[in-house]
Design a protein around this nucleic acid. Structure first.
Length: 704
RNA sequence: AGCGGGAUGGGAUAGCCAGGAGAUUCCGGCGGGCUCAUAACCCGCAGACCGGUAGUUCAAAUCUACCUCCCGCUACCA
C-alpha cells in the first residue's frame, strides 16, 4: 500500500459492507453499493486492477431469531435472503466480481485459520464473564437474545449494542436488567468462560493506522475516542448454535462455542476475493498479492510503524461502508488483520444515511422506498444511482424525495447529458451518417483533458460525486459549445466549419460516455452503442475520451426520458397512504391495555427492604433540555432529597410545592440529564398521578 | 443529555483538510436569444455582509477558542 495515486501497480480490492441476510433492502441501503460499484468502475477506467467483492452476512442472533419465528432452519432462512440479494444487485447494475456469503467453505476455513493464527500469536485468551442466562429455558442468551438497560445511558438496549440509546457497542455481560427475548423471562447472569481477542495490545498499532488511513474523515475521526482512550478486549465467542464453530481448543467442559458474527463477517472480504481469484485464475487476479503479500510480519502488533507500511508493497484495500459500522472496520478488523499478518486497509469510505423527505427511513412505519418498488415504477437503475451518488458529499446524509429526484433527473440527465448527446449525434447522423471528417479542435481537446484530470483527482480524493460532476459539467460545456457555434447555420455556407463543430461535439459525447460510466453504467453503454463503438464502455480506459469516435453510426434514440409531474404526484400519494396505513396498525397495536399482573410473589422481607416515606414537595422545576423531566426537592423529615421525575408535562409544576407525596428513599441513585436523582417519587399510570396520603401522616413516616 | 452531521443568495448544494482575485453549481424569479435538440438548449440580470463573537494572519467561508441555532438517531417517567 503505497499511498501513491491510483492507478498503482498493485491489485486493489473494493468491498461493500455485507448486507445482513435478514429482510429487504431499501434505497437507503443501496447507496453504499452504488458507490462501491461506481468507485470500482472508476478505478478500472484509471487502469487500476481491481476486484469488487461482497457477500451476505449469514450469522448472528437476528437471523437465528427471525428464522425461529418463521419456523425454518437459520441456514435456509439466511440462504433464501442471500439468493434474493444475489439476484437483485445486478438488476441495479451493481456487479460484484464475487458475491458470496459467510457460510461458504472458503470463509469458514479462512476465518478458522485467522483465529488459529491469532491464538498462535498469543492474541487470544480465556476469561470468565457473567453472561445472561434464561433460567426457565436453561440456555445462555447471547447478544440479541437478551434485552435490557444500557449501563451507560440507561436506555433500553439490545444485548450487543445500545441500538436505541447511545449507540454504544456492548460487550456480553454488560447489559443491565436483562430479559430473555425467547421467553420474556428475566434473565440471570451466570459465569461462563469465553474467548477474548486482546484488542488492547493493538492500541499503538491502531494509533498509527488511523493516521495513515485514507478515505472519508469520519472513518478517521469517529474511532479516535476509542483508540486514544482505553481499548477493551473483545469477546469473540458466543454460546449458540448458529455460527462458525470456534476452531481452537474449547474452554473446559464446553462442547460448543461459535464465533461472534463480527469475527467471520469481515473475513468474507478476503474469502470472496479468494473465490474470485479461484474463478478467474490467480494469474488474472491474485488475492494473496492483495491481502497478504508485503505485509510486515505477523505477531508483534506494534512493530510496524507508518514508514514500514508506506514502504510495503501491498494491495490496495478499500472498504466502503455505512457510517454505522465504522468502529468495526477501523478498530476490530484492522487489529485482526494485523494480528494474523494480513495487509491493512488503505481506505475506508463511510457514507452518510439516506433520509426520506428529511426524516430517516423507518422500516416499521413503512416509511421507505424499497428497492423493488423503485424498479417496479419502471425507472432505470442509473437514475437513482446518479441521484444518490451526486447529491451531497459522501459523508453527508442525503435527502431523498420524489420531487428532488424528478428535478435532478429532468434537469441534469434529460436536459444536460441526454439532450446534448441526442442533439449532437442526431445532427451528425443526419448530416454525415456519423462522425464528420475532421479532428478535435484545440479548445475542445483541452476541455476534455481538463475533465479527465478532474475525474482522476476526484477518484484519488475518494469523491465519486466529483467524478460524476466532472462528466456532467463536460456535457454542459458541450451544450454551450454547440449553441455558441450554431452548426445548423454553418452547414450550407461553411460546411468545413460545420464538420469541425460537430466532430468536436461527437468527441465530447464520447468523452462524456467514458467519464460517466461509473455513475451511469447502463446508460453510457447505450450511448456507446449509439456512437457505433463495438466494445464495452466499462472496459476502456481514460485515453478513450480523446480517441476518435467511429466513422459511422445511425440516428440515436433519446437516452433519458423525462419524468412527468403526474407520476411524481402519484408516487407521493401512494407513499403517504402507505405510511398512514402502517402508522394506523401501529397505533392499534399499541392500545393501552392494563399491564398484566405479576405472577411472581415477593416475600415480606423483600417488601421490608423498600424504604418508602411520606414526603413533602418543597420545590419543583423543569430540567432544561428535557421534555418531561423535573427536578424536585422533597422534604422527608430527616433531610431534603433531590429527585428527578418525569412529570414536567403532566403536572403544573408551580402547584406542586407543599403537596405531600410518597417517596422510595432507598432507590439507587441515578443521574439524568446531569442531575442526580436520590429517590423515586411514586405515581400511578401513564399520567403519573402522584401518590399522596389519605390522612395526615407526618413527613418522614415509613409506609408499611 | 449522548453520539454523529450541519449552518453559504428564495430552496438545495460546492468550496473548508492543503487561507489569497469578482464565492460554485442546480432549481426557482426576471429579461433576452436560438430553433439542431426531449417546450429541450444558450446568454444576461436580481439575489449571500458564507450562524454569532473573539483570536491568529498582510490576507479567513476556509485555521483556533467560545457561543447560538438546526437536523438525524436516541433518550428523558429512578
Amino acid at each position: 500500500m503505497s499511498h501513491d495515486d491510483f492507478p498503482t501497480d498493485n491489485p486493489a480490492v473494493v468491498t461493500c459492507g455485507l448486507p445482513y441476510a435478514n429482510g429487504s433492502l431499501h434505497i437507503g441501503h443501496l447507496r453504499t453499493y452504488f458507490s462501491g460499484d461506481a468507485y470500482t468502475r472508476a478505478l478500472e477506467i484509471l487502469g487500476q486492477e481491481t476486484a469488487f467483492v461482497c457477500g451476505s452476512d449469514m450469522h448472528g442472533t437476528p437471523v437465528a431469531i427471525n428464522a425461529k419465528k418463521e419456523e425454518v432452519e437459520p441456514e435456509r432462512f439466511a440462504l433464501r435472503n442471500h439468493e434474493k440479494y444475489k439476484d437483485w444487485f445486478p438488476e441495479f447494475n451493481i456487479n460484484f466480481d464475487y458475491f458470496g456469503h459467510t457460510r461458504e467453505e472458503t470463509n469458514v476455513e479462512l476465518t478458522s485459520e485467522i483465529v488459529l493464527k491469532l491464538e498462535e500469536e498469543g492474541h487470544i485468551f480465556e476469561d470468565e464473564i457473567e453472561v445472561a442466562w434464561d433460567p426457565k429455558a436453561e440456555q445462555p442468551l447471547p447478544d440479541r437474545y437478551v434485552e435490557g438497560t444500557c449501563p451507560y445511558c440507561g436506555e433500553k438496549a439490545r444485548g450487543d449494542e445500545c441500538d436505541e440509546g447511545c449507540q454504544r457497542h456492548l460487550e456480553p455481560g454488560e447489559i443491565e436488567d436483562p430479559v430473555s427475548t425467547i421467553t420474556g423471562n428475566p434473565a440471570e447472569y451466570r459465569p461462563r468462560t469465553h474467548k477474548f481477542f486482546r484488542l488492547s495490545a493493538f492500541q499503538e498499532y491502531l494509533q498509527g493506522f488511523i493516521e495513515r488511513l485514507e478515505g472519508t474523515s469520519n472513518a478517521r475521526n469517529q474511532p479516535r475516542e476509542w483508540i486514544m482512550g482505553e481499548l477493551e478486549d473483545w469477546c469473540i465467542t458466543r454460546d449458540m448454535d448458529w455460527g462458525i464453530e470456534y476452531p481452537g481448543e474449547l474452554p473446559e467442559g464446553r462442547d460448543k462455542l461459535v464465533l461472534y458474527v463480527w469475527v467471520d463477517a469481515p473475513v468474507e472480504y478476503i474469502a470472496a476475493t479468494k473465490q474470485y481469484s479461484e474463478r478467474v485464475g490467480q494469474g488474472e487476479f491474485d488475492w494473496e498479492a492483495a491481502w497478504k503479500d508485503g505485509a510486515p510480519k505477523a505477531g508483534e502488533p506494534d512493530e510496524a510503524d507508518s514508514e514500514t507500511w508506506e514502504a510495503a508493497d501491498t494491495g490496495e484495500i478499500i472498504h466502503i461502508i455505512g457510517r454505522d459500522i465504522i468502529q468495526h472496520h477501523a478498530i476490530f478488523w484492522p487489529s485482526m488483520l494485523r494480528g494474523a499478518g494480513y495487509n491493512e486497509p488503505r481506505a475506508i469510505m463511510a457514507s452518510g444515511f439516506v433520509n426520506l423527505d428529511g426524516q430517516a427511513f423507518s422500516t416499521s412505519r413503512n416509511r421507505a422506498v424499497w428497492a423493488n418498488d423503485y424498479l417496479n415504477e419502471g425507472f432505470h437503475p442509473d437514475l437513482i444511482r446518479y441521484y444518490l451518488i451526486t447529491t451531497g458529499g459522501f459523508q453527508q446524509d442525503v435527502d431523498f424525495s420524489w420531487e428532488k429526484f424528478q428535478e435532478r433527473v429532468n434537469g441534469e440527465l434529460v436536459g444536460t447529458v441526454g439532450n446534448f448527446a441526442y442533439r449532437s449525434l442526431l445532427f451528425a447522423a443526419r448530416n454525415y451518417n456519423g462522425t464528420p471528417d475532421a479532428t478535435t479542435s484545440k479548445e475542445v481537446a483541452e476541455r476534455i483533458r481538463e475533465a479527465v484530470t478532474e475525474f482522476k483527482d476526484a477518484i484519488n480524493d475518494y469523491s465519486i460525486k466529483q467524478a460524476g460532476d466532472a462528466a456532467v459539467a463536460l456535457a454542459a460545456f458541450g451544450n454551450e459549445y454547440i449553441q455558441r457555434n450554431e452548426p445548423w447555420h454553418l452547414t450550407d455556407d461553411e460546411p468545413q466549419r460545420a464538420k469541425q463543430v460537430i466532430y468536436d461535439c461527437v468527441q465530447i459525447v464520447k468523452a462524456v460516455a467514458v467519464l460517466a460510466t461509473p455513475i451511469l453504467p447502463g446508460k453510457t453503454q447505450r450511448l456507446w452503442d449509439q456512437l457505433g463503438e463495438d466494445s464495452k464502455v466499462h472496459e476502456v480506459n481514460l485515453n478513450a475520451a480523446l480517441e476518435s469516435p467511429p466513422r459511422n453510426f445511425n440516428e440515436p434514440e433519446e437516452l433519458f426520458e423525462k419524468i412527468e409531474d403526474e407520476h411524481i404526484d402519484d408516487l407521493n400519494e401512494r407513499l403517504r397512504d402507505r405510511i398512514e396505513a402502517a402508522t394506523e396498525t401501529e397505533d392499534e397495536s399499541m392500545s393501552d391495555d392494563l399491564e398484566a399482573l405479576a405472577n411472581e410473589r415477593i416475600s415480606f422481607d423483600d417488601f421490608q427492604e423498600l424504604d418508602i416515606r411520606v414526603g413533602r414537595i418543597e420545590s419543583a422545576e423543569g430540567i432544561e433540555g428535557a421534555d418531561d423531566l423535573a427536578r424536585l426537592e422533597v422534604d422527608i423529615g430527616f433531610e431534603t432529597r433531590q429527585v428527578v421525575a418525569g412529570i414536567k408535562q403532566l403536572h403544573d409544576l408551580d402547584e406542586l410545592p407543599g403537596e405531600k407525596c410518597v417517596l422510595l428513599t432507598n432507590m439507587e441513585k441515578a443521574e439524568l440529564f446531569g442531575v442526580e436523582s436520590n429517590g423515586m417519587i411514586l405515581a400511578a399510570g401513564e399520567e403519573a398521578d402522584l401518590l399522596t396520603t389519605h390522612g395526615d401522616a407526618d413527613v418522614g413516616e415509613k409506609i408499611r
